[in-house]
Design a binder for these strands. Structure first.
Lengths: 243, 243
DNA sequence: CACTGTCTTGCGGGTTCCCGCAACTGATGT
DNA sequence: ACATCAGTTGCGGGAACCCGCAAGACAGTG
């Protein structure tokens, strides 16, 4: 059995190395990569099927690396080991995980034992292991009324990128009014209408830009989501430059 | 000599502990705190005059802890040891450092030797040590034309919080038009007017909300700055509820 | 089939934003 | 005293935003 570690912090890397060799004595090779790019390369060249990786790395964060790795070998088992329980991360991962692949999401703050259990469950039993905190967040954001539908999420990203209603409409193939409807429900779900639990709409606020920071503070959006979206946007803008 | 470590990551904490005992053999006591609150308490109760602390912690991040610690004992020497070189952090620190206090800002990615040198320089020689990357950023943001004046920065924070022009004017005691002037220069300095180095203003963009994310991606604003500002805002809103 | 709930689109209009233009203040330098 | 330059304020207007209202589309249900 071979395991690949992709993690930029050297301390965390060596800690992981040690925990893995404890939890998986049958492991014969533990390789390390310090960012997403060399991680992708090692996974491809040495055909790793078991990977533990961090999410917040630069250049090339964990989600992007996982995307290309899973694209090349969909049966790879990946354990994400991250500091944060951002909804942006969870959403990003659930968008790219191939059906049938074993994966896990464990917070760095969990105990040694939990981490070891997760390692065995994923790499030996091919089970999926999601930390309780993450699951909780998935439920909360999925079950309740303030769930974000995929289309609402897209529009949220677009206003964060700073697009006008009109441009969003063009990009997402909607009418102007539909975009604005989505905006209204986004504002409502983000609770942007009033700072202090008031009922009415607070005339002190510009809902649009407040929505952006609220989404960021809630972890609904994060740095790398935005960078990725920015890239997609600029290529779209080039394609539609004439229009 | 006694040193206090304030750092939430246990691995980084023990690493710091080890490096400190190496670099400062004359040190007789090394205490550890895992967040800003207990850090403040320990510093107060046991009268630490030398502190190494992380910036990104919750609850109570490094800057807030440093503020209260310096408030109680302005001669404390503090070495900030952080992952990021955000302008928000640098700005936040330079706002609270008492005149004459020795402090340092070192990135976690620097080598052992540099960290050890910094420790001796600050805690033994009472010098200030700022990592080259940070200095570079200070220069870039201060020397060039795209420096942000303090007043512009305030307005930037306000639009990130989602205030309307009118409310910003009331809060900052300006006319409406002055606020908008500041906005214009902010937009210009952030380079929000066009995605692809065009000259004119891109009608696809809503400059206001784009400015927020650009500022965040550049590290001009960050999570904890915004939380702090949000708190100040809500108390201001309460005071001026009737007006 | 009728009923209901969700989603979309158009219309109209009040409000806010964005900004060019021009006048005024105040500080600085020669 | 005069010129200059940065910063502030008012005015006016075009564009964008926010949203209530109502009409249509479409799926699921009894």
């Amino acid at each position: 059995m071979k395991v690949l570690i992709i993690e930029d912090d050297p301390l965390h890397r060596s800690y992981l190395h040690q925990v893995i060799s404890n939890a998986l004595p049958e492991c014969t090779l533990i390789a390390e990569a310090e960012d997403g790019l060399v991680g992708e390369r090692l996974a491809r060249e040495q055909r790793f099927e078991r990977i533990v990786m961090d999410l917040n790395m630069s250049p090339r964060n964990g989600i992007e690396a996982a995307r290309t790795i899973w694209h090349e070998r969909p049966d790879t088992s990946i354990l994400f080991w991250s500091n944060y329980a951002d909804e942006a991360n969870v959403r990003g991962i659930s968008r790219i995980v191939p059906s049938g692949a074993a994966y896990g999401y464990v917070l760095k703050s969990t105990s040694d034992e939990r981490l070891q259990l997760a390692l065995r469950a994923i790499f030996v039993e091919s089970q999926c292991v999601i930390d309780r905190e993450i699951r909780g967040m998935q439920q909360r954001s999925l079950g309740h009324a303030d769930e974000f539908s995929e289309s609402e999420y897209e529009v949220l990203v677009d206003i964060a990128l700073g697009l006008t209603d009109k441009t969003i409409a063009k990009r997402r193939h909607l009418s102007l009014r539909s975009v604005q409807n989505r905006l209204q429900s986004i504002y409502e779900k983000l609770g942007v209408y009033s700072a202090a639990e008031g009922v009415g709409r607070d005339p002190n606020f510009n809902f649009r830009s407040r929505a952006v920071t609220v989404a960021l503070m809630r972890g609904l959006l994060n740095h790398s989501t935005l960078e990725r979206a920015e890239g997609e946007l600029s290529s779209w803008l080039k394609r539609h430059a004439g229009a």
